[in-house]
Amino acid sequence: MSRTRLVIASSYAAIVTITFVTIITIWAELAAPLKDWLKIFSGHHWTSKSVLSVLVYAVAAAVLYKVFPEPNDGRLRQALFLLLWSAVLGVIALTVFYTGHHFEFFS
């Protein structure tokens, strides 16, 4: 097993997972049928998002590990840099969204 490919696959899988959680969370707040489906899927919308986030991360990491060639220095650092910023932007997006949602900026 190539450990550098594992790192780059995990980095991009984590970016995909953070993006997925951010989008599905905001989307479910704005679209009742999606939130209802998430509740039905596991009994609670948050549990469903948790289970799906694990599945998204695991599947994305496995697929990307197969797809990516051995990464060079710059590509690996770029992936980690993007991961760092995706986490920061995800936190900002959810905080801003729920603040706006509470003060009914979106209705």
Binding site: R3, T17, I18, S50, V54, L80, A87, G90, L94
Partner: peptide, 26 residues
Amino acid sequence: NIVMETKEHIFLFIIPLAMTVVFITL
């Protein structure tokens, strides 16, 4: 409406971040 909703979802970011760091330490 703001704090709990944000908290419960950003917690989901930590696991993939932590797993990536674990793989780096390999």
